[in-house]
Simulated scan of single mutants.
Amino acid sequence: MSIQEGTQEKIGFVFLSGAGLDSRIWSKVVDGLDYPYLMATYPRRQDSMESRKKLSLDDYVTHVKRQVDEWGPRRFVIVAHSLGGVIGLRLASERNDRLAGCISVGAAIPKNGGSFLSVLPFPQRMLISTIMRIIGTKPPESAIRAGLCGDLSAEQTTEIINGFTPEAIRVYTDRIKVSLPTVPTLYVKLTQDKEFSPSLQNKMISNLSPQWVRSLDTGHLPMLSDPDGLRAILEEFMINARS
Rank of each mutant, 00 (worst) to 15 (best):
A92D: 03
V213H: 00
S225T: 07
I160C: 00
S27Q: 14
F76S: 09
A100F: 13
G88D: 01
K53D: 02
L200Q: 12
C102L: 13
H63T: 12
K54N: 15
S243N: 15
D174S: 06
E5K: 12
A241M: 06
F164G: 02
V61S: 11
R74I: 03
P184G: 11
V14Q: 08
Q124D: 07
V188L: 11
I144Q: 09
V30E: 12
K65T: 08
I169E: 14
Q211L: 08
S48E: 10
Y172V: 11
T7M: 10
Y35Q: 13
I205S: 02
G12K: 06
V29M: 12
I87E: 05
P121N: 07
E70A: 14
T182A: 14
G113W: 04
R242P: 04
D69S: 14
V68W: 12
P121K: 09
L117A: 08
K203G: 01
P166S: 10
P181C: 03
V86L: 13
T173D: 08
G106Y: 03
M126V: 15
V86K: 06
E94R: 12
R170D: 13
A168E: 09
Q8H: 05
K54V: 03
E94H: 08
S17V: 04
I131W: 01
R44Y: 01
K111E: 13
D174E: 06
